[in-house]
């Protein structure tokens, strides 16, 4: 059984919809925000976040934790994240099972890890350090990948499950990312979903991707495709009722279109 609440069906809060969301009401249950976008000292972003938080549950979703990097953890970043979490009181804090830079550089991209015992031990130790620093458990999201390291000794789903088990953290299961990686690497996405420990899944992400011919790219630029809805149905039957969230970050549509995707997630879960 999950230790976090089922928040229902939400969407990622983006600047383009600030006005519409504040105007209210909406038919979504909750919002997820990109943590780094709200680490400024003031101005409209924090004002909007505080207003939204008054009326909805909010989760913080980061992109810069770089949990898999071999660089030291960025203490300044963690301090800012803790400060933001204290201010917002989010339902949970999440980031990605990846690395974003090395040698002091930051690619601002979600880079793939080799699935090795060395990487596993490294990530687990850092998750524990982060949870200690933040004073809360975190959830990690599986990312879309475009290459497979020759030295990997574990399938991704085993690596993810083992990190969550050993570090006692949650899983943010991105169903679109499972599908994108499955197509890119030729594995069965249902096998992946069947191996994820249901009691560790705090949240599900749903998003659209772009077919580049030779590979799928996780662009968050369109509606969720039928295959991903099918996988969401499959995942829901396994893991039960956990919060779902629609991510849409490029070619951002009007509010009604985005909201409709969230309502579809609700309907799919009810069917399942």
């Amino acid at each position: 059984m999950n230790s976090v609440p089922d928040l229902g069906h939400g969407v990622g809060l983006r600047r383009e919809h600030f006005g519409r969301v504040l105007e209210g009401p909406t038919r979504v249950d909750w919002f997820e925000v990109i943590s780094e976008n709200f680490m400024g000292k003031g101005g409209r972003p924090l004002h909007v976040l505080e207003r939204v938080r008054r009326d909805y549950p909010v989760a913080l979703h980061g992109v810069s934790l770089s949990i898999g990097s071999t660089d030291p953890l960025d203490r300044d970043y963690l301090d800012r994240l803790r400060e933001l979490a204290d201010r917002v009181e989010p339902a949970w804090v999440s980031d990605h099972l990846c690395w974003t830079g090395v040698g002091g550089h930051n690619a601002h991209d979600l880079l793939p890890l080799p699935y090795t015992e060395e990487a596993l031990e490294h990530v687990v130790a850092r998750v524990e350090a982060v949870q200690e620093h933040l004073g809360r458990r975190i959830a990690l999201e599986n990312v879309s990948t475009y290459l497979h390291f020759a030295g990997s000794t574990l399938p991704e789903w085993e690596f993810l499950a083992e990190v969550a088990h050993r570090a006692d953290c949650g899983i943010l299961l991105d169903v679109n990312n499972v599908y994108v990686s499955a197509v890119n690497h030729g594995f069965d996405p249902e096998k992946y979903l069947a191996a994820v420990p249901a009691d560790r899944v705090w949240q599900v992400h749903l998003a659209g991707h772009t077919d580049c011919g030779s590979h799928l790219l996780d662009t968050h630029s369109r509606r969720v495709c039928d295959e991903v809805w099918g996988l969401y149905r499959f995942a829901t039957r396994r893991i039960g009722a956990v919060a779902s969230l629609i991510e849409w970050d490029e070619e951002i549509p009007d509010w009604d279109t985005l909201e409709a995707e969230s309502l579809r997630a609700r309907a799919v879960r009810q069917e399942a």
């Binding site: 898999g68 071999t70 060395e118 030295g151």
Partner: peptide, 13 residues
């Protein structure tokens, strides 16, 4: 040989 994690990340970057 496949590098260690630091080696993988440095080369990748």
């Amino acid at each position: 040989r496949f590098p260690d994690l630091r080696g993988v990340q440095s080369l990748f970057w």
